[in-house]
Simulated assay, not measured.
Amino acid sequence: MLGIQEVPDSLDPAYFRLVLGHYPSGVVAITGRNAEGAPVGMVATSFTSVSLDPPLVAFLPMRTSTTWAALRETGAFCVNVLPAEQEHISRQLAAKGGDKFGGIAWRTETTGSPVLAGAVAWVDCTVSAVHEAGDHFIVVGLVEDLAIGEPASPLLSFQGGYGTVASPALAASGVPDLPEVVEHFRLVDELRPRMAQASRELGVEVVATALLEDEVVALATSGHPEPGRLPTRVGQRMPYQPPLGAAFAAWSDPKRWVARLPNEQREHARALARRVRERGWSATLGESGNLDLERALYRLPIDAPSPEELDAVGQLLDPLSEAYEPHTFTTKERIPLRTVAVPVLGPVGTIRLVLTAYGLPPYSTYEDFVRYRDTLLDIAGTVQTLSA
């Protein structure tokens, strides 16, 4: 057995790096100040949590890092979890020389270290301990403050390049093991290969949702949305409340859905459900308020959000908005499509799942819309045939 300091002669450093590169790791920006107070920063893929009590984290800079030398003098640093769309910031901070913070917006929190705008999360620390480990240091930080920033898919390092969290098709866990839920997952297993193929062909995210009591739950997702759009988390929930969930209401008794609204708004919701049922698909258009809604949905806990949290999302909904279930599209119009959805029906016409094309480009043509709709209808029709 090898001792801790023994290294086999045949172990090539390049091959060592290649093998370990097959383990994906998150990309974080380590920021702080130098002795003169100027901002300094570096990129690390070695960030990890260490302890809950006391709250400790760690990262591993190279012994030759001049940025770490500057941070060590001031004794504080901030870990910024970078989103996928900030790959350019990662490259900028990783470069040697130049103005690393040029064009990067940031602020300060408890320790005075820079907190980068748009970070998925940030952890503000003071240096607790430094350990030597070969050609690196293990820097342990005592957490002084931390928070979730902008919900987004995080940037990953994998096999020497950048990536993000985008499995070909993910399925939810933590959903109650009820007979109807088991059946939903059986259908999801049938759908996953077709969802992945549709995502590749359409260049969008495809999501399978189910109606579970008073919530619409994302059971599976494939692909990824347009850059700048928040990806769907498997297990993500949204309230079954007009105008959300119109496709489920269209192929079931809409009374429970409509009852969430004041009397004067209920007929409008019934009309939405009828329109979806008559034409066989659902669609929404983009508008400025939808980004706030996406962020609120993204922040909902995966495991049983409270009624208060769901109500807070409901407050962002406008049941009368013309962005939901538009009447018609013209062939020459640039359409700000946000979603296109179709039902997956059982043998007797009851709704089982909804398939949604999500994260579309800012504008689509009528031909794009037909392509999204017909691709989803083809998938749903295949599942119905297999299940009949």
Rank of each mutant, 00 (worst) to 15 (best):
Y324F: 08
H327L: 14
P326M: 01
E308I: 11
S288G: 15
S321G: 04
P326R: 02
L320D: 02
E309K: 13
E322N: 07
R295Y: 06
A296E: 04
A296R: 03
Q315N: 13
Q315E: 14
D311G: 13
D303S: 12
L310A: 11
E325H: 06
A323R: 08
E294Q: 10
S288A: 13
G289K: 10
D303V: 12
E325G: 02
S306W: 07
G314V: 08
S288K: 15
P307I: 06
L300H: 00
Y298W: 10
A296S: 08
G289S: 13
L320N: 08
Y324A: 00
E309R: 13
S321W: 07
E309C: 12
H327W: 12
G289F: 10
S288C: 15
Q315P: 11
P305A: 01
A312C: 12
Q315G: 13
S321E: 08
D311L: 15
L297C: 07
P305L: 00
S288I: 14
D303N: 12
A323P: 05
D292R: 09
I302P: 05
V313H: 05
A323H: 03
E322A: 09
E294M: 09
E322R: 06
V313E: 10
G289C: 10
P301L: 07
E294F: 04
L297M: 04
P305R: 05
L317H: 03
S306E: 07
H327Y: 15
I302Q: 09
G289V: 11
P307Q: 00
P305V: 02
Q315H: 14
L297A: 05
E325T: 04
I302L: 13
D303P: 09
N290W: 12
L316K: 08
E308Y: 13
L300I: 04
L297R: 03
A323S: 10
Y324G: 08
P326E: 07
P319I: 07
L291E: 14
D318R: 05
V313W: 08
E325D: 11
L297E: 02
A296C: 01
E294Y: 08
R295S: 02
S306T: 09
N290P: 13
P301E: 02
T328H: 14
A296Q: 00
E309Y: 11
A323E: 07
S321C: 05
Y324L: 00
P301T: 06
P305T: 01
L291M: 13
S306K: 01
A312R: 13
H327R: 13
L316P: 03
A296V: 01
L310P: 12
Y298R: 08
D318C: 07
S306P: 04
D311P: 14
Y298V: 04
L300G: 06
D292Q: 09
A304E: 11
Y298C: 10
A323K: 03
E309F: 12
S321L: 01
L317D: 05
I302E: 06
V313S: 06
P305H: 01
R295T: 05
P307C: 01
T328N: 12
L293E: 00
E294W: 03
L297T: 03
D318V: 06
R299Y: 03
N290Q: 15
G314M: 10
D318L: 02
P301A: 00
L310R: 14
L316E: 09
E309W: 12
L316G: 04
D292E: 11
S321I: 00
Y324D: 00
L300F: 02
L293S: 00
E322M: 03
T328G: 12
D311C: 15
L293Y: 04
S306M: 02
A304F: 11
Y298G: 06
Q315R: 14
